[in-house]
Design a protein around this nucleic acid. Sequence first.
DNA 1: CGTCTCGTTGAGAGTTTTCAATGTAAGTGG
DNA 2: CCACTTACATTGAAAACTCTCAACGAGACG
Lengths: 193, 193
Amino acid sequence: MFDILFKHLQKKVELTARDREHIPAFFEPKKIRRRQFLLNEGDYCRKLNFVSKGIIKSYALDEKGQEHISLLAWEGWWASDFSSFICEEKAKLSIEAIEDSELLLISKINYEKLLIEVPIMERYFRILYQNSLVTKDRRLLSSNAYNAEEKYIEFIEMYPSIAQRVPQTLIASYLGLTPETISRIKKNINRED
Amino acid sequence: MFDILFKHLQKKVELTARDREHIPAFFEPKKIRRRQFLLNEGDYCRKLNFVSKGIIKSYALDEKGQEHISLLAWEGWWASDFSSFICEEKAKLSIEAIEDSELLLISKINYEKLLIEVPIMERYFRILYQNSLVTKDRRLLSSNAYNAEEKYIEFIEMYPSIAQRVPQTLIASYLGLTPETISRIKKNINRED
DNA sequence: CGTCTCGTTGAGAGTTTTCAATGTAAGTGG
DNA sequence: CCACTTACATTGAAAACTCTCAACGAGACG
């Protein structure tokens, strides 16, 4: 279970054998099944969740009860309500498993402790956040500048494997579109080939 | 000039007198005038830019030549093409001063050096990025879930002072709307009062 | 077999954009 | 100081895009 985590960490920083010994103690493994919740809107998000297996979605509901996906996370990704975790406010997001999944959770206390006791992790998270910012910027640009078809194509090209693993309703929600629109776009694209 | 920087740093971390002595040497002050460019699309973004005075916009152009603002940065904010800076790719963004501005620039080499020689800065940037992620998440949600009026109102409430400092064309571009739409929304809002 | 989830399709409605015209304030050079 | 240009905001009408609502079909699962 920690293999995936170490593999992921080592893409960004170098871990010593000592680091690898220390790190696991800070985490708590957890398995959840499809449709189970990791976080409910209104609760406090007290853990950072690393996905070692499966897929997770985190989303907000609007006043019409519509779901807006803020993040799809699979093997090697983190999924949390960051805003709630950091600012210690009630979560505006819910987090739910799309497939049966395996996770490694770290509490806020352990997170802070980890950053101090294993300093390379401070660097790891700085780099992780740095990269996430780049990704989010790209997503924001495409959200503001692209039309539905362009958004869809960008998504498919960026995450081809995910596009096959999750129902298109979720992709629609991720892109801020309706499933019907996605369906029509696909028809369009096929006709053009 | 470093006062603003220190003030900003100290919102997130505690600096020792030694830190304050060391930090300035890593930065290069720069003044630019309204409409001058800090970065041109296609160049490499080799510096992180801290705004100590003025306002800066960073934006991408689409194939129709339309401007899409990815960031408005004023006193206490950083403005760069992060993707270019981190990944050492050609910049997709241009960065331009909206008002005469004063900046503190740090090169990539100095950035890396600063993170190692003044370890508290590693923590500072981790926290900075962490907070930026929260902001971007919120912006992404509103971009995907809100209609034009809701986006505009959220912006005005979030950045009331900026809304007065920059022309509404820029706000429109920031929100992924047209200036005409903003104009009509304002009319609507006034009528409703 | 019945139920549930997911995808497709059509028609009409709603929102936002586009294009074009006009007004206004500010900035510049003679 | 005035004339001229430029930047910005407003308004209208038509077009484009995406959503909503409703119906139907296909596949998975118990």
